[in-house]
């Protein structure tokens, strides 16, 4: 069994019309045994930029703290908030620093640019190879299922409420077929004005 599947969990981000959404399941496992049902894998970076981390739970926490530190340093030095595209490069270089002994985490980035108002999503592999998708990005133990459902449900230019429905249905139906993901879910829909955060009433088995 791969180290990437040790704790389980999945993250997904989707682009809409002037909005983005990012969601994760809430399971933390130790192989087949579920340990916690409140392990969120999506973290705020700025007020309109979120980071999702799926993979080895200890590295999820390490990287969350590491990015918090590096984003704080950026904010102090530059005296401005970090842009999503800039943050994606920061994620990529942070992971590539550990090219020959990587963090076992696949990050997903979702945000809206403060400068242009453009929605932005990206994902990387464990060594920081960036994927700027124009539709959706997935990672985690249910990634193949997420690809299948997202490819079937997603369409361009979804409004925030429709994007919420699409990402929620994609995540729930994918994790319901994955033994290592599930046990609740959380969704963040980011618009230029506000962020809507909802925990979903999902299957708990």
């Amino acid at each position: 069994m791969s180290i990437m599947d040790y704790n389980g969990g999945s993250v997904l981000a989707m682009k809409g019309k002037n909005c983005v959404a990012i969601a994760s399941d809430l399971r933390l496992g130790n192989q087949a045994m579920t340990v916690a049902m409140n392990f969120e894998k999506v973290f705020p970076v700025t007020d309109c930029l979120y980071l999702g981390l799926a993979g080895l739970a200890s590295d999820v926490i390490t990287l969350r703290e590491r990015f918090r530190y590096r984003v704080n340093m950026y904010t102090i030095k530059e005296e401005r908030q970090i842009e999503p595209a800039t943050f994606a490069q920061l994620v990529s270089s942070t992971l590539y620093e550990k090219r020959f002994g990587p963090y076992f985490v696949e990050p997903v980035i979702a945000g809206i640019s403060k400068k242009t108002g453009e929605p932005f999503i990206a994902a990387t592999d464990v060594i920081g190879c960036l994927n700027f998708a124009k539709d959706f990005v997935v990672c985690g133990t249910a990634s193949d299922k997420l690809f299948g459902v997202a490819e079937g449900l997603w369409e361009p230019d979804l409004e925030p409420e429709d994007l919420f429905e699409t990402i929620s249905q994609t995540l729930m139906n994918a994790v319901d077929r994955d033994a290592f993901s599930g046990w609740g879910a959380i969704v963040h829909v980011i618009t230029p004005e506000k962020v809507i955060t909802r925990t979903l009433k999902a299957r708990m088995d």
């Binding site: 299948g148 459902v149 079937g152 449900l153 249905q169 139906n173 994918a174």
Partner: peptide
């Protein structure tokens, strides 16, 4: 080969799961 991609989609669209 692609059963893991299609089956959860069918769960949603045919069995109306999570709806």
């Amino acid at each position: 080969a692609a059963s893991s991609l299609i089956q959860p989609f069918l769960d949603n669209q045919i069995y109306f799961k999570n709806q």
